[in-house]
């Protein structure tokens, strides 16, 4: 016999408040907690904990280890090459460690590469020029990026994501391709030039290409998103009532910007400047493609040593010096930042 019980229910079921199904996320959590509760897993977990390896340590340590290995290993190789000397061989440098006889190991440290960097003024001037160009580009990026980030952070909420996406949009095409595009834009027969002539703003088309200005334009254009994003985050966090309070206390808008907005977004300014300055110092693609023979930058010199002169030891020495010169100040700066940040946080 079959009993058919017709059920017709309207509205919410008063008794069963839990849904009869679990969402995918709940299923995953349930499975995970079941797995973690399982005896052998628990035992292994407590063993690992004894060794100081908790979950948190694992998820942070593994990527750090990865980064360390792939930073340190190439660094040590480059360091080794920088103490070597040129040879017509494959690879084109003399081995650092040689066996003089069966029992005697000969380590030949060639300091000549570093001496050469010091003696030939090309390298020092290239380095100084890179620092100058990176500094100027960073300032330009800050001057363009700050109002931009401010505008985005103060726009209406539904506009913000669209504007931020537009800032990041260039990343969707290749960096190289975008720099190549600037060759077309800055050249003598570029549409920009033609427009300027047609408007009567300039008499004859000039070319910005192969000047320092082309390099500045290229760097500022390429690195602007790295400036805008940290600035946006800092400005968006700023409490607007602080500006109202300043205004209420008799502070004019310009003054309020200088004494409230600027100091309270300092972290964003520092982060953005570092993200632009550091890669811009070692930049070689932009000066090679857009710059002229005078736009000497250390990254470009390094590239030419490696691939044109095939002088790997000197190129490595350049790389090591550049790294030390950049890392030292950055670490000191970072520490000062942390000390200052600790006070007003």
């Amino acid at each position: 016999m079959v009993i058919v019980e017709p059920v017709c229910q309207r509205g919410r079921d008063p008794v069963v408040s839990r849904p009869a199904y679990l969402t995918l996320g709940e299923q995953f959590t349930a499975a995970l907690s079941a797995l973690l509760g399982w005896g052998p897993v628990r035992a292994a977990q407590s063993r690992l904990k004894e060794w100081g390896l908790t979950g948190r340590v694992a998820v942070t340590a593994v990527p750090y280890l990865w980064l360390l290995v792939f930073f340190l290993a190439p660094f040590l190789i480059v360091l080794k090459i920088s103490f070597s000397s040129v040879e017509i061989a494959m690879p084109p440098f003399a081995p650092l460690v040689q066996w003089a006889s069966d029992k005697v190991m000969l380590v030949r440290l060639n300091l000549g590469n570093f001496m050469f960097l010091w003696e030939d003024s090309l390298y020092l001037s290239a380095l100084l020029n890179s620092l100058k160009m990176a500094a100027v580009s960073t300032m330009l990026a800050l001057l363009i990026g700050y109002p931009m980030a401010y505008g985005i952070a103060r726009s209406e909420r539904h506009w913000r994501n669209i504007l931020l996406m537009l800032v990041m949009l260039p990343f969707w095409t290749s960096f190289l391709l975008r720099v190549y595009a600037w060759i077309g834009l800055l050249g003598r027969n570029s549409p920009v030039n033609q427009l300027l002539v047609w408007l009567g703003l300039i008499d004859e088309p000039g070319s910005l290409l192969q000047t320092d200005w082309a390099v500045y334009i290229g760097i500022v254009y390429s690195y602007l998103p790295f400036m805008v994003l940290p600035l946006y985050t800092a400005i968006e966090k700023l409490d607007m009532t602080l500006l109202e309070a300043a205004s209420d206390l008799g502070c004019r808008p310009t003054r309020a910007f200088l004494s409230i907005t600027l100091p309270l977004t300092r972290e964003g300014i520092v982060a953005g400047c570092m993200l632009v300055f550091i890669p811009a110092t070692g930049e070689f693609v932009i000066p090679s493609l857009l710059g002229g023979p005078d736009s000497l930058m250390i990254g470009r010199v390094l590239w030419e040593e490696f691939f044109n002169n095939r002088d790997w030891p000197v190129a490595s020495a350049v790389a090591i010096v550049l790294l030390l010169l950049l890392v030292g100040p950055i670490m000191l700066f970072q520490r000062a930042q942390q000390a200052a940040g600790g006070v007003h946080r």
Binding site: T241, L242, E244, A245, D248, L249, G250, C251, R252
Partner: peptide
């Protein structure tokens, strides 16, 4: 008259103290 020229001061609900 803009706020910075009014002979008026306000105590904000959030206090709005300058954190730095």
């Amino acid at each position: 008259i803009p706020p910075y020229e009014r002979p008026v001061n306000m105590m904000f609900q959030s206090y709005a103290l300058f954190p730095h």
